[in-house]
Structures are given as structure tokens and as C-alpha cells.
Design a protein around this nucleic acid. Structure first.
Lengths: 364, 364
DNA sequence: CTGAAAGCGCTTACAG
DNA sequence: CTGAAAGCGCTTACAG
């Protein structure tokens, strides 16, 4: 009841004044100075817990949002956090941005989208130009999404900038930047084991020819699983392809083509797997009855083919959230749920999120 | 070399940032007050020509750029602009957000994402709750994306809030809010005509059962085109489906099933069309040789099936940009390129962007 | 036609 | 751990 009344009052007040809630009002409601509210907003550790809590409830009750303009003007150093993207719109990019926006707001950072591309492959000149633009933006931190984590020249250049770099995805720790990885190798193991449990012994794999660390790790996980289940590894069950639908179709046809064809195929990405499904259709095979197909990523591609793909979801939201947090606090916390701190600069998320849909059936 | 250059640029930038030219310096150089400089900047007619000229040369000499942050801060409150979304990540959402973020920054607005859903269908309670949350956010404006434009209860509730509402997509002008529509009917006409030009006479249409205005308009365009080309309209060539891959598959099978089957099928959305492609595969028909298929939207679904779909791209970036602009200026400009001002509150974009891919072949 | 003052909403720098 | 003051760069509202 009380909450409802306060709610109503705030609303009426806002309508009447036609302006938004300011730090002053929050301070008044919490019974502290503006300074203290500002400290809470900026994550200063010097505020007593009790005071902090009081301020936070005031913020919530009034639905206060700091005015970015004022912040920028006063501070001269609102932290600008960049999120790099390549201009290709996708469900992954929307997940990344939505979550980054939310996390940045929570931690008082301002999100700036920085675009590179979308030309593929990226030329050295293009990279240098983009990096110059990023340098000129005066960012405090920059987040590189999984999709661009393999661009070594780009990462090299970005590492030289006077900003904190966080790379999502990939595998190895690198002291030039912070990395948040997820357990691709275990994912590959899991997906392969699922197929083995369904009786499959001849399992094909469509690998990414660009040899990104993540994609290579998925393949390594596949080999781990074969070994674990005493199934011999065969070169001819591996095909490489450019990550595109066409690449998946071609690689799928190649794998299906020969006489001793696989009964199941893993795509290193959903897009490749979607291509494999189409290849199966073209060759007259029913999925999943004649051929099981699984992918990686839980992207839109996984839900756009029939049957919809069993796949492994990447914890993108979690990763950006952790990245923004890292930038806010200049380091990872010691204890992150479901994640392991490999080095102070390298956090690995080790939960696996298997999404089972309709593209797997028992063999034979 | 390049790295060194990047460093140098940053250094220069930082120095520049610390002492960026302000209105005060311009005023001093021109020998006037800040106020006069401000008047010149804001095109006030009350400045004497001679003074104006002096100020302008000072501006040029110092290469002065007004600080947008300060401008917006002083000029009034910064406007909070909401973008509604349903939590379902997609390429469309990423396009919407990327563009909204950019436009808001340009016009000094602050973008707030407001989520409703993602439960489907949305219950009245859920809608009311979401609308309350939106009310409490104290937004000045709210943009409703095409995907949610059909939710009449939601729109009704939002119309009652003390904020400026802009609905993207849909068809009819409504005085309770501003609308930016695109030419769905002409799009339906165009797509149908493309098929007719390819010799198709029996053209199926998978309609959206939810009867959204846009989707209905596409069907109307289809009928227009048939009439224009003297092809009789047949009820049995129309199927309705829930907008999902499964819906498309089922509707596709129904249309393909009967003896006198269509040689081409239009999906009211790409997702439905993707389902139709899968249905064709399941029934042993080759796309596009046995069946041509086209969709609407140029979404990820259009690129995730094989063959990739010919479709019509919606001008989403353009629409959000215009929406943000409308909110900034409280109205549409008189002359927008490629668009028509139906009423002062209703702008219709009449360009059609046909994306031809590989899902259409000549009939017979 | 022009200017001095107040203030937008926030932060930095200092003081307790 | 918390607060009072000054000021970021500009505009509005008032005064000449």
C-alpha cells in the first residue's frame, strides 16, 4: 500500500514538474548529502553499508537515473565504455547490447558503440583506421565480442591503446588484456557425448576454417569425447568451412557424400549446422532420422531451420555483465558463481547450457 | 609504426580535451559577452551584423565547437527516450537499438530500454504491470517497435501515459500517438509481381493469424497484384498460421498438399517463409525449382535457410531515426526523403527495398 | 541590441 | 566515513 502511494506520488510529481528525478531529491529522501549519493553511484567503497543501503532504496523508490549529460560535464571523466561490433545485426549483438546497456547503467558507465567493418575479411588499413577512431573516442574501456576475438591484428592494435581491454571468448590468457572465456572444449565434449549416448559412432564435425581459438577448442572437446568413449578419430569425418550457410551446405554435402557416411554431424557454429541440415535435405536425408545434427551458440540460425537444432548456448549476457563489472572495479572478484579465475586477468565461465531440441535421434 | 601513431593521436586528443575551446574564450577574443556568442550560435536575429561577424571569425579562428553536454544540460532537462522490446533477441532488435543509441546521442536524448514479456501471448495483467513500470520510469517519449505495434491493449494503455508515443509499423493514423509506417501493401504488390514476372500464376500466401495491420496489408498488396495481372484470387491458396517456424511448416504442407498446388508461396514474414522452405524439403520439393518461396523482413531467418530467401527489407534504422527525431523536435519535418506525411502525426516511408536471393525461379 | 546573474545535475577537491 | 563549496560549459530569464 505504502509503496503504491509513494509510486503514485512520484508519478504525479513528475507529471506536474515535467522533469526527471535528480540526485538532490534522492539525497533528501535518503537523508544524506548529494555527495554521498554520488559516491554510491560511483561505487566508492568508502560509504558505510547502512548508508549505502538507504541511498539505494531511495534510488529505487524514486526510479532515479543519473543524467549522463551532467555527469559528463561535471566529471570530465564519466567512464566511457565501448562495445565493439562489426555492423552485422544479429540476435547475439542484441543480447550483448541490451545487457551491456543495463550493466553500464547499474555501474554508472556510459556505453558507446564502436563499429568496425562490416567488410570481411578486414584489411589492415581498415583495422588501423577503426583503431584510430576508437583512440579518438577517448574510451576508458573497450569490450571485444566473441565474434571479433580471433582478429589478432585488431587485438594487437587495441592492446596498444591507453584503455582497459576486455576480450570475450577465445581461450588463452594474455597479459595485454582481460579475457572472459567460456568452456568451449567442455561444450564440444558434452555435445559429442550426447550423440554417443544416442548410439552414434560415426560422428562428423564441420570445423571453422578461420581457426578461431573457441572453434578449435570445440573440436578438441569432440576428440576428447571420442577418446573417452573409445571411438577412433577419423580424419575423413572432419570438414572445414568458412562460417556461412553456404559453407555449411558444402561441407555437409562433402561429409554425407561418401559411402561410409556419418550418422550425426556437429557444426562448429549454428550457422554451419543449419547448412548441414539443408545439405541433408538436398541429399534426400531426413533429419534427425537419417542424420542427427547439432550446433553451437543457440543463435537465430538454430531456430530457423526445421527441425530446430539442439545446440549449446553461450553465456553472452553473463560475459558482458562480468566485463562491465571488471571495467568498473578494475578487476574480477575472487568468487564468481560458476566461473573460475584462471589468472587475475582471465575468467573462465564453466557452466554448460545444453539446449535440446529436435535435431537428434537415436542411431540406426 | 601504426601503434606509435595511435599513441600520438591519443596524446594529442587528450591534450585537446583538457583545454578544448569554450564559449568564454570565444567571447574574450571577440570582445563580447558569452551571451552574445550564445546568441550567434543559436541563430538569434537580435545580434547586430557587425558583432555577429566578429563573433563568427573568433569561432572560426579558435575552431570552437560547442559542448553538446553542456548545451543540453543548460537548455533544459535531458529527455529520456524509451525503446520498448520484448526480451527476444534478434537481428531486428540489434538494428533498432544500435540506431536508436546513435540517434539519441546525436540529439542529446538518453535511451532507456524498457522490456515487456517475453511471454507470448501477453496477458492483460502482464501488460498492466509493464505499463506501470514504464510510467514510473518518467520517460518523455517511448518508441514501440513493429513487432509490438499490433498489441492493441498495450498501445491503449501506453496512450494514456503522460509521454509522447511513437509507434513503428502498422498502418492507420491514430491521433493518440505518432506513427511511422512503411509501405507493406506496396511491398506485397512488389513481391507478388516479381513472382508473376517469373511466370507464376498459382501463388500461395501464408498469412499471420494474429491479423496485425502490417501483415494484413501485405496480403492486400498480394490481392492488388493478382487483380492487376488478371489472376483470379483463390481462397484455398491462402493459409493462416501463428508466426513461428512450426506455423510456417504446417501452413506450407497444407498448401503444398493438395493436387493443384501453388508453384510459389509468399510468407507474411521471413520466419513463415523459412517454414515453407522446410515444408517443401519434407515433401520432396526442390526450392526454387519446384517451388519458389519469398518472405518479408530480411531477418536472420531469411539467411539461415537454403536457398536463402528473396525478401523485402524493412527500413528499421530509418524508422527509429525518424522516431527519435520526432521526439526531439515534437513533430515530423515537412519534407522527408522517400516518405510521405499522411497526417502531421503519421509518416509513411514509401521506398521498397527488394532483396533478391536464390529462392525464386521461373515457373514450369 | 547586449550583458550580468543564476542555474541545469552532476563531480572534484577539500575539510572535517 | 560524510558534507559544503566550487565549477564543468552552456542557456534561460531578467535587466539595462
Amino acid at each position: 500500500m505504502c509503496g503504491l502511494n509513494a509510486f503514485k506520488q512520484v508519478e504525479e510529481y513528475l507529471v506536474a514538474k515535467r522533469r526527471s528525478v535528480t540526485i538532490k531529491e534522492v539525497a533528501e529522501l535518503a537523508g544524506v548529502s548529494q555527495m554521498t549519493v554520488s559516491r554510491v553511484l560511483n561505487r566508492a567503497e568508502t560509504v558505510r553499508q547502512e548508508t549505502r543501503t538507504r541511498v539505494q532504496s531511495a534510488i529505487q523508490e524514486l526510479n532515479y537515473r543519473p543524467n549522463l549529460m551532467a555527469r559528463h560535464l561535471a566529471g570530465g571523466r564519466t567512464r566511457l565504455t565501448g562495445l565493439l561490433h562489426d555492423g552485422a545485426h544479429s540476435s547475439e549483438l542484441s543480447e550483448l547490447i541490451v545487457c551491456a546497456l543495463q550493466s553500464c547503467r547499474d555501474s554508472g558507465q556510459q556505453l558507446i558503440l564502436e563499429q568496425i567493418g562490416p567488410v570481411e575479411p578486414m584489411s589492415p588499413d581498415m583495422i588501423d583506421e577503426a583503431v584510430s577512431a576508437i583512440a579518438a573516442a577517448g574510451l576508458d574501456g573497450l569490450i571485444v565480442p566473441p565474434h571479433l576475438a580471433n582478429q589478432s591484428r585488431l587485438i594487437d592494435r587495441l592492446s596498444e591503446l591507453p584503455l582497459t581491454l576486455v576480450v570475450l571468448g577465445g581461450t588463452r590468457a594474455d597479459e595485454r588484456f582481460a579475457r572472459i572465456s567460456h568452456h568451449d572444449r567442455a561444450g564440444g565434449f558434452e555435445l559429442t557425448s550426447l550423440l554417443v549416448r544416442n548410439g552414434h559412432k560415426r560422428i562428423g564435425f564441420v570445423a571453422d576454417q578461420s581457426e578461431g581459438e573457441s572453434e578449435q577448442d570445440r573440436l578438441a572437446g569432440y576428440r576428447d569425447a571420442l577418446m573417452h568413449h573409445n571411438i577412433p578419430f577419423e580424419d575423413k569425418l572432419i570438414a572445414t568451412a568458412e562460417v556461412s550457410l553456404r559453407g555449411g551446405v558444402d561441407a555437409g554435402r562433402a561429409l554425407i557424400g561418401h559411402s561410409d557416411r556419418p550418422t550425426a554431424i556437429i557444426g562448429a557454429t549454428d550457422k554451419l549446422a543449419a547448412g548441414v541440415v539443408s545439405a541433408a535435405h538436398l541429399e534426400g536425408l531426413k533429419v534427425p532420422f537419417d542424420l542427427s545434427v547439432v550446433g553451437f551458440g543457440d543463435t537465430e540460425a538454430a531456430g530457423a531451420v526445421w527441425p530446430q537444432l539442439t545446440t549449446i548456448r553461450r553465456p553472452l549476457s553473463r560475459m558482458v555483465e562480468l566485463a562491465v563489472d571488471y571495467l568498473a572495479k578494475s578487476g574480477f572478484p575472487d568468487d564468481v558463481d560458476g566461473a573460475e579465475l584462471v589468472t587475475p586477468q582471465h575468467l573462465n565461465i564453466n557452466t554448460i547450457d545444453l539446449i535440446e531440441r529436435d535435431s537428434v535421434a537415436a542411431s540406426g
